[in-house]
Amino acid sequence: MKQLLSCFLSFKTALCSLLLISTMANSADSAVFLQYHHVSEDTPRSTSVTPDRLKQHLDYLDDNGFTVKSIVDVVNSVRDGRPLPDKTVVITFDDAYKSIYENAFPLLKEKGYPFTVFVAIEPVDKGYHQFLSWDQLREMGKHGATIANHSITHSHMVVKHPDETRQQWVNRNRDEILKTEARIKEKTGQSVKLFAWPFGEANPELRQLLASMGYVGFGQQSGVVGPLSDFTLLPRYPMAADYAEMRGFRTKVNSLPLPVKKQLPDSAMVTDNNLKPSLTLELADGDFQKNQLKCYASNAGEIPVKWLDDEKTRFTTVTPNSLSVGRSRYNCTAPSMDGRRYYWYSHQWLRLNEDGTAID
């Protein structure tokens, strides 16, 4: 940037043009966030990658021109409109499992890659065998790990307790976030005000609460973080089981944010009288092929896209099948104009049990 400024001040227009083109070609306003849980061959496949698979992921990033940056740097850059290197990636781990220290940390340290551990503090405080200790978290913090907030108990925060008023429910969730943040600061010295929703579950009231507290929130829906993203529910690509296979990994880490200006509904919650919810998105202009935009539902595969205007700036999509109890997604993607990368957006749905409880 200093070189560009000097260039323009000296009126060397041809050189300036070349520098500007080069700078723009190698900068971006978005980043891919990856979400891992266990890194082990002996843990549930649905939330695990093997150490060999993680090594393949890290080697691919290292060999193909990616920049792995700290979560704080990337969040601040995107929010403040500062450019990032093209193909920027952030690595995160949820739940503070011991396998992160045993199997992921050595690989990350060897690469010099920063990473984040979102900690649910109760299992750590109680010394549960499968979880990290505070000593291990502090050690990783000295080698580039950001230690961030994942609640006390990893409960379903959208669920109200029996006989709990709305205000009591809000206060309980506020206290859980604040107590977790205070405990992390006490034990590690870090307090970055980044919060990963347990199970990726949030509703508008909780997101508003988080924003009022000055926190940035992260979900578990796929997609890319960009300037139009909702900073109370930023997307991350879950990496586990088949979703961590190399073919899909290559597509995801090279993806770009579908520029969604507005979405309806602005909520994940599925009601009993609307079990086939429609999603309407309004798009900003972008370097993607609108005619090739496709959407998919987790319970139905590809689902129809209906454009609502001739300019193809608004469309709606809906599953033909009722969503099951639990978490579901609609994913919408479109290839870039050169066909080399995909623009991506995901919306998570949440349907509770009849008694208002959620499933893990």
Rank of each mutant, 00 (worst) to 15 (best):
E164I: 04
E205F: 01
G144K: 08
A96F: 06
L108M: 03
I184S: 09
H156A: 07
R172E: 03
S151E: 03
L194S: 05
F105K: 12
A202I: 08
L210E: 04
A196S: 13
D135M: 05
T188M: 01
V159D: 04
S212G: 12
K179T: 01
D135T: 15
K193S: 14
E176P: 05
L206I: 10
P106C: 11
G141Q: 05
A96Q: 02
A196Y: 07
H156G: 02
A202H: 14
A96E: 07
V117H: 07
W134I: 04
K111F: 10
T188C: 03
T146N: 08
K111H: 13
G112I: 01
T180F: 06
K142W: 05
S212C: 03
M140P: 02
N149Q: 11
L132S: 10
S151A: 11
W197E: 12
R138E: 13
D125Q: 05
Y101M: 06
M157Y: 07
A196M: 05
R172I: 00
T188Y: 02
L137A: 01
Q190V: 00
G200F: 13
Q130A: 14
D125V: 01
K98V: 01
Q130G: 12
F199E: 13
Q190S: 07
H154K: 08
Q136F: 11
D95H: 00
E186R: 08
I121G: 09
S155P: 00
M213A: 02
W134M: 10
E110Y: 13
V119C: 05
T116L: 07
Y113S: 09
G214N: 10
V119S: 10
A104H: 13
V216Q: 08
E186V: 08
F93D: 09
H161M: 13
K160V: 04
R166S: 09
P106H: 13
V216L: 08
R207P: 02
N173Y: 07
V216T: 15
Y128S: 08
K98D: 15
Y128E: 15
